[in-house]
């Protein structure tokens, strides 16, 4: 009964809960922006808010389903332990999904930034002026639209730096600033440095991913061992129990 009552209560307060979250979101200032950026791969607050809403809605829906199921199972005189198990499993799956999303976005940022720096350098070497070179390079970044001047791009990159807290982006901003006064050729050392840092980061991310895969592969291996043990032990246990 408690489960069903809680379910009805949760459905009723859903709207108020979302309104409260909206209020808290506007009050939060810059807190949590880096985490939200990693989850959404966007520097826009509206996207962050939408993401937060969709996940809170999912959580409420999930909670409602579990409360209702728990209530129904109690009415049918079945143990609620199954629901608790399913709840833990779903929670774990949700956390894993968020983790993999963060990792995917990190990879995407590294790849897009490498492409951005490379294209910017190449366009400058090709003789294009700074604004056209940045506009051309920014096509490889899905983070912001075309801007009217170099300053606009620098501001967007500054926002990206605030969100990602990644020093390479600060170096790219400095590179844009220097680009106002120097030609592409005289900046080649700076470009080489930024590119090598980006490549190092790319290599490190790939190595981390490999380590993760190596660790994860232990799971099916252990499960196979468990199946083997079950196959050997069950007939003996069954005989022992039935006697």
């Amino acid at each position: 009964m408690i489960g069903i009552t809680s379910f009805v209560f949760l459905r009723l307060v859903k709207g108020a809960l979302l309104r409260k979250i909206s209020e808290l979101f506007s009050l939060r200032g810059n807190r949590g922006a880096d985490l939200l950026f990693r989850l959404t791969y966007s520097t826009q607050e509206s996207v962050h808010e939408l993401f937060l809403f969709s996940w809170v809605m999912r959580l409420i829906d999930m909670g409602s389903v579990f409360l209702l199921s728990a209530g129904l199972l109690t009415l049918l005189d079945i143990s609620t332990g199954y629901i608790l198990g399913a709840f833990c499993f779903t929670l774990l799956a949700g956390l894993l999904k968020l983790h993999s999303r963060v990792q995917q976005n990190q990879h995407r940022l590294i790849e897009e930034m490498s492409s951005f720096v490379f294209r910017y350098e190449m366009a400058l070497l090709g003789g294009q002026n700074q604004y056209l070179a940045i506009r051309e390079a920014a096509k490889s970044l899905a983070l912001f639209d075309a801007k009217e001047d170099v300053e606009g791009y620098a501001q967007e990159l500054e926002k990206l730096f605030q969100a990602s807290k990644w020093m390479v982006i600060k170096k790219v901003i400095i590179l844009l600033e220097r680009g106002k006064h120097f030609t592409g050729e005289s900046l080649s050392m700076d470009f080489a440095q930024v590119s090598s840092e980006l490549f190092e980061r790319y290599a490190r991310a790939k190595k981390l991913e490999l380590e993760k895969r190596e660790n994860l592969i232990l799971l099916p291996m252990s499960a196979n061992m468990l199946i083997m043990i079950i196959y050997v032990a069950v007939p003996f246990l069954a005989e022992f129990i039935w006697r």
Binding site: E111, F118, R119, A123, L125, G126, G127
Partner: peptide
């Protein structure tokens, strides 16, 4: 991620780098 050979500013130097 490569700059296409048909792009306006494509050159041998750019190609070698990529």
């Amino acid at each position: 991620e490569f700059i296409h050979p048909e792009a306006e500013h494509f050159s041998l130097e750019i190609y070698e780098k990529q």
